[in-house]
Design a protein around this nucleic acid. Structure first.
Length: 703
DNA sequence: AGCACGCCGACT
DNA sequence: GTCGGCGTGCTC
């Protein structure tokens, strides 16, 4: 390094590795501000990197290479952004560079500095043009006329109820995280909007996180209507690479004042951020399931703390983690029990399937009393919704004369029968073949479907309700572009009598006028090893109930409540008691008590070490060795490591999968072990032939 | 993660 | 004789 040169530490996209520090050092003739985007040579490649805060020099004998270029046209990423990324990298046990680079739009990594400069110039020009237009339109008083650009026809804010007003005040006054506990239809969205408005008025930006953007078109259109004049942009994985870069840059340059996005948007660079909203905070979609397995909800709370700004976590069925934190006083809790417009809670009907004869069950997806209710609903001219969380026609085929079942040769799972194209499809590895004419094992012609999916349900309902207009919405029926939208609008237009669907219809879509909602096969998961199953079922049922909530202003003439039917084999389970009383608090109390007894979150912290290998033996041996390595560390104090177990679907595409649970009552103790464990784990990698990969999942959702 | 180098099997 | 399989090692 020439004496005149400056040392620059940068984060590059490399996996966390024993022999490599988090930051690599380069030289540059001038000082480079931390947060600047740079390009550096790495081996034979030229890679995108982010200049970082200098770390103490580490002697490694080698001459440092020079930074290739500094993107002067893009403002540096802020210290707050770098804190967020550094925290996430440390907490989820990934390299700083991997997190930093994956938090940026992919296209940004590919463009060189000239291309970036061209883009920022273009964006600045577009911005200036629209500002001029706005000024001109304001001067001539053309705002709100037909020829004014749509972004200047902002919707007016409605008057808040006193409950909503209190919520907005509490959120803004508190400064920390607020758990906004409000039933479906209680007007949480309006609270978000008015809190956002207040923050925008102070010249700050607002970040709104939602579970899945395509499931919440209503929130997007309300935000667009209200805040178009402020510059609203979206950030999610369905954007094209060019859109994603443009939207990201709009937030980074401060042009967009409101960003609506999915979990990846928690890393959006927003230099003047003043508020974060996490809608449906309990939703599992906020947890990334591959790579850096971060929880966008938890990172949003960290970000709020780190930048001293209010964070709103909204839900009608909060996660028990958030509920507990509110109990501890770490979050402020604001309740909104009232349903705006006097909408009433549906009547809940539990159908005990143990009392339905086997033969009747086999022939009819819906038990006779539910079928009668469905017919009555239709006779009243009302729509109904039947939820079954299993797509395809039947989950498995079987041969009546031998024991053959339609298993997948590459996975430990059945192949699902899809009647439409008479295929057998593995939902795990994608293998699809024609249904065999005869049993592949014994040659018998008598193979038949067992169980039922949405396709069969649709077929049975079509037979049982002649003349009814039945529509199915699931991942198979909405595969094409725009298919979901057109199906949904058919429902909204009243062109559908009975809607059949999987969970994807229960989430997000606001069908306010369903006379009847039925949940079939809801409790399949209740007695599995998944300790969060009751919590998820409760959320699903509450959401389903919300779909049946009728708008009193629209149905003032009708006095009867709508109905929520649940077919269950476990009618005495507390989840149903709580549902009938629509009492989340009681449900949360019983669940929290059970979790405490069982030593589960939120009373303990968990991490999962997963191993993929060519054989189960190799995966198990690796995990066993990893366990031994951990037990030898002083940091293992206060941490329990459980034996390795196969995943629920243990083999997928010929890869055997095992996992090992690591638990501690102290999050800090668990973090300390995970940090110390990293090097020994890397060292073990090479000693297990046939091991394909391993990964740590911190705060896993499914165990 | 890339991208090298390196050392053993079937092919234009 | 080479093309190419993926094991091992390195990247400031």
């Amino acid at each position: 390094m020439e004496p005149a040169d400056h040392r620059v530490d940068v984060a590059v996209e490399l996996p966390k590795h024993g022999g490599l520090a988090d930051l690599l050092s380069y030289t540059h003739p001038a000082a480079v501000e931390p947060g600047r985007l740079v390009q550096v040579p790495l081996g034979k490649r030229l890679v995108r990197a982010v200049a970082w805060d200098a770390s103490p020099p580490e002697p490694h004998g080698m001459a440092l290479r020079a930074v290739a270029s500094v993107a002067q046209s893009v403002p540096p990423l802020s210290p707050a952004w770098r804190r967020l990324v550094a925290f996430a990298a440390a907490y989820y046990q990934r390299s700083l560079g991997e997190l930093a680079l994956s938090a940026l739009p992919p296209r940004l990594r590919q463009l060189d500095d000239t291309q970036l400069a061209r883009l920022t110039t273009k964006l600045a020009a577009a911005r200036a043009a629209s500002a001029t237009k706005a000024a001109a339109s304001a001067a001539t008083g053309t705002t709100n006329t037909a020829d004014a650009p749509p972004e200047f026809q902002a919707e007016a804010s409605p008057t808040l109820t006193s409950e909503q007003h209190h919520a907005v005040q509490a959120i803004l006054a508190h400064g920390g995280a607020t758990l906004l506990f409000g039933a479906t239809g209680s007007g949480k969205t309006e609270v978000y909007l008015q809190a956002a408005q207040a923050v925008l008025d102070r010249g700050r930006q607002v970040l709104v996180l939602v579970p899945e953007i395509n499931l919440t078109p209503q929130l997007e259109s309300r935000l667009a209507a209200r805040f178009a004049a402020h510059g609203l942009t979206t950030l999610h994985s369905a954007l094209t690479p060019a859109q994603r870069l443009k939207h990201w840059m709009a937030a980074h340059l401060g042009h967009a004042r409101v960003v609506l996005g999915t979990r990846l948007a928690v890393f959006a660079s927003m230099p003047e951020l003043g508020l974060i909203v996490v809608d449906e905070e309990h939703d599992p979609s906020f947890k990334q399931q591959e790579g850096a397995r971060y929880s966008a909800r938890d990172l949003a709370v960290y970000r709020g703390q780190s930048e001293s700004l209010p964070v709103v976590l909204g839900s009608a069925t909060p996660s028990l983690e958030s509920w507990r934190r509110a109990q501890e006083g770490r979050y402020q809790r604001v309740d909104m029990p009232e349903r705006v417009g006097g909408a009433r809670w549906p009547k809940v009907r539990l159908l005990d399937m143990n009392k339905i004869p086997r033969e009747v069950q086999r022939q009819h997806a819906l038990a006779p009393p539910l079928m009668d209710a469905l017919r009555a609903c239709r006779a009243r001219g009302e729509q109904s919704l039947v939820l079954l969380n299993r797509r395809g026609y039947a989950p498995v085929l079987h041969c009546k004369s031998c024991a053959w079942k339609s298993d997948c040769p590459h996975c430990s799972a059945w192949r699902v029968f899809h009647k439409i194209d008479r295929s057998l499809r593995c939902h795990h590895c994608g293998l699809a073949t024609r249904v065999p004419k005869a049993c592949p094992s014994c040659g018998d012609m008598d193979i038949e479907p067992m169980g039922r999916g949405t396709q069969k349900l649709e077929e049975q309902l079509t037979l049982a309700l002649p003349g009814a207009r039945i529509k199915r919405i699931d991942a198979d029926s909405v595969r094409g572009k725009g298919a979901l939208e057109s199906s949904l609008s058919a429902v909204h237009e009243g062109d559908v009598d009975v809607l059949v669907g999987t969970q994807m219809v229960a989430k997000g879509h606001d069908f306010r006028r369903m006379g009847l909602v039925a949940v079939i096969d809801a409790d399949g998961s209740l007695f599995t090893s998944d300790f969060r199953a009751p919590e998820r079922l409760f959320a699903l049922l509450m959401q389903a109930a919300g779909r049946a909530g009728r708008d009193a202003t629209l149905d003032a003439a009708r006095d009867e409540a709508s109905e929520l039917w649940v077919q269950t084999w476990h009618p005495t389970h507390p989840v149903f008691e709580a549902l009938k009383a629509h009492d989340f608090e009681a449900f949360a109390a019983t669940q929290l008590a059970q979790r405490q007894l069982a030593g589960l979150p939120p009373w303990t912290s968990l991490a999962l070490l997963r191993a993929d290998a060519k054989s189960a033996d190799v995966a198990e041996a690796f995990l066993q060795a990893a366990s031994q390595a951990a037990l030898g560390l002083p940091e293992c104090e206060g941490v329990t490591i459980y034996p390795a177990v196969p995943l629920h679907v243990s083999k997928v595409a010929d890869v055997e999968r095992m996992q090992m649970l690591v638990e501690s009552p102290s999050r800090i103790a668990l973090q300390r072990l995970l940090a110390a464990w990293h090097a020994p784990l890397q060292a073990l990698r090479g000693q297990h032939k046939g091991l394909l990969r391993f990964a740590l999942d911190v705060d896993p959702l499914q165990i």
